[in-house]
Amino acid sequence: MDRPAWRRVWNRRPGDPPKRVFWTLLALTAAGTLWLRSIPLGDFFAQLVALWVWFGLAVAWLALLVSGLVRREGRARLRTARTRVRWLVAPVLVVVLIAALYFQVSLRARFALSEAALRKIAVATAEGRAVELGQAGLYRVTEAEAVPDGVLLTLDGADGFLTTGGGFGYFPNGVPPMANRDVRFTHVWGAWYSWWEAF
């Protein structure tokens, strides 16, 4: 007689790699993390929640591995090449994710798909023309501020810890000094920079 689906999901042998529930949570958390980091700074509290989820996944992975190592049956299963490879998939994926975050892959990809719409708002603002804020590509622009030699676009969701705002800056001639403001810039590409302002 076949076992119920929930028994097949949860019934584990010592040394078995993580199963469907773990991989589903891992995939959702990785996708959510990349999305959060596709905005300059990103939502601080949402990223804090994601960090705790990652911690829980790491603890679960380690606990499952240790439970296999402490039992003879589990150690025998862990000696097989196929099982070792399956155990290594999660750490390898995490390393790839960390590299993607370090090189801002998700931010650059989302920005590339939105650059034309963002540029339209930035140029109109720099020229003093009326501009309609709101959805611009895959970002939502909440404010467009003309500053010396450029424009600061404030984005919805770019609210890091102890900051007053953030987004993208458009500076065709490079970033000038920002008098009386603690604004930090990071080059994205071309005339574009990500920015955030501290309290």
Rank of each mutant, 00 (worst) to 15 (best):
Pro172Leu: 13
Ala99Trp: 02
Arg119Ile: 01
Val66Ala: 08
Trp23Phe: 10
Arg13Lys: 09
Ala60Arg: 05
Phe185Trp: 07
Leu155Phe: 10
Ala191Ile: 08
Ala27Pro: 15
Trp10Phe: 13
Ala60Ser: 14
Leu101Glu: 09
Met1Leu: 14
Ile98Pro: 01
Arg75Asn: 02
Asn11Asp: 10
Ala144Leu: 09
Trp195Ile: 07
Asn180Met: 15
Leu48Cys: 00
Ser67Met: 12
Arg77Leu: 11
Val131Ala: 07
Asp2Thr: 09
Ala116Ser: 15
Val85His: 01
Val96Leu: 14
Gly160Tyr: 00
Val66Tyr: 06
Glu132Trp: 04
Met178Leu: 12
Arg79Asn: 03
Leu34Trp: 09
Arg184Phe: 13
Arg79Ala: 05
Leu64Asp: 08
Gly128Ala: 06
Trp35Thr: 14
Gly190His: 12
Leu101Ala: 09
Val105Ser: 09
Leu48Tyr: 07
Leu153Ser: 01
Glu145Ser: 14
Asp159Val: 05
Trp192Pro: 09
Leu69Thr: 09
Pro18Glu: 07
Asp43Thr: 11
Gly42Leu: 07
Arg77Trp: 08
Ala60Thr: 14
Gly128Leu: 09
Arg140Lys: 08
Phe171Cys: 07
Lys19Ala: 13
Ala117His: 12
Asp16Trp: 04
Arg140Ile: 11
Trp61Cys: 02
Gly166Ile: 07
Thr186Asn: 06
Ala126Gly: 07
Ala99Glu: 02
Val105Gly: 05
Ala90Asn: 05
Val105Ala: 13
Val96Tyr: 02
Leu107Phe: 13
